[in-house]
Design a protein around this nucleic acid. Structure first.
Lengths: 212, 212
DNA sequence: TTTTTATTGAAAATTATTTCACAAATCGTC
DNA sequence: GACGATTTGTGAAATAATTTTCAATAAAAA
């Protein structure tokens, strides 16, 4: 399934490249060099070439990379040639913003179902997405074959909800709660911890002055 | 200023430790081992000990770490013993959610000013935070001595707004736009790219199955 | 007191990632 | 075609981060 395992650091950069390739494509550029890419995405050009080379020789010496074929290649690699459905669990403050956040505009992901405990939300439609009661979580995930969830519930219930979601077949979790949830090894968690990010930023400001 | 430069990977974990130490403190635990911490924060115990050791010998062999003194230490290190004001630029969909997101509850950061282009928003107060017109960005940042901004504007204006903010003295940017903004070396950018996170998650799901 | 158990701190080994630097390939021009 | 200018792809070196290992020490038990 994997093409001889790409480094994680590389994998995390692929969407960044993909995004900029789309921009180039939309502006009808058909050729790009690693140096040019480097400036746009703020990644060293040697790193970009190394990243690309894990997938084979994608460029041409003395020429650069062909935008269209590179784009097509990454679209495939990133599964962006198919639509991926995700579920949002917890339609509170942040959850609501994510419902309106148009993932589908920039990527082939869309939130196709949402869940919340509040009885007045259950069985309504918010921003075009049906909201189900939490009691239906497992069943709906199974029925709709949803493999990815976005977790925006209160920390106190995060682990329970996670367990439920995994029971429903979920394989990837975008976790906005500060809790580091426990999951089996075949489930992937990507943590987005806003308080953390701010604190890290403050730390760097105070301790890594005037350099990079 | 810096205590002989800590690895970046370590710096990013400090807020995670800090948060869990607070939880331990609140539940009146006064001692913790690296193994116990490890389970809670999902970081290998050796990595935790290594991380701590950059700051000196904080623990006691055969005993573990004293929660209170460790907490006090990290509070200082992370500047959480002082209040840090941040500004939010762009009170749209996501920006609004962040205004309501209580950073102050979990950390000593609060959003003390917000900015938006919409004339109907300017000079109102949203969730207790005054909204200023964009034209006042630089002046307000200077006057209020705000060094950190949260950027939730449309991508198309991200670079301009960033330049303005930096002219106003900003040193750290939590960037929610997909644009990799250009900044001088003494300004730090922390990118939070939601579409990216989802795409990375999908990539890992498809290519790094059944292992870790 | 002595022994056992728990646990850190740090050196060393390992693994992962980035960067350098250059030969090889290709392009565009004369 | 030959030549100079570009630009990739990649070994090798450098740097960064994690993990192993274990001596030293503290606390608890005998």
């Amino acid at each position: 399934m994997a093409e001889t395992k790409i480094p994680k650091a590389t994998a995390k950069r692929l969407p960044i490249y993909y995004r900029y390739l789309n921009i180039l494509h939309d502006s009808d550029k058909n050729r790009v060099s690693s140096t040019e890419l480097s400036e746009a995405v703020k990644v060293d050009s040697a790193t970009i070439r190394r990243d690309f080379s894990y997938f084979g020789a994608l460029g041409k010496r003395g020429y650069g990379y062909d935008v269209d074929s590179l784009l097509k290649f990454f679209k495939k690699i990133l599964n962006q040639d198919k639509l991926t459905n995700a579920a949002l669990i917890g339609v509170g403050n942040l959850g609501n913003a994510l419902l309106n956040f148009n993932f589908h505009q920039n990527s082939n992901v869309r939130i196709s179902a949402a869940f919340d405990v509040r009885p007045d939300l259950a069985n309504t439609v918010q921003s075009g997405v049906p909201i189900y009661p939490m009691s239906e979580l497992r069943k709906q995930l199974e029925d709709q074959q949803i493999k990815i969830v976005i977790l925006t519930v209160p920390e106190s219930v995060a682990q329970n909800v996670t367990d439920d979601a995994i029971a429903g077949g979920v394989r990837g979790i975008l976790n906005f709660t500060p809790l580091r949830v426990s999951v089996p090894t075949n489930v992937r968690v990507q943590n987005v911890d806003l308080t953390n990010e701010l604190q890290t930023l403050i730390y760097f400001l105070d301790h890594y002055n005037e350099e990079e």
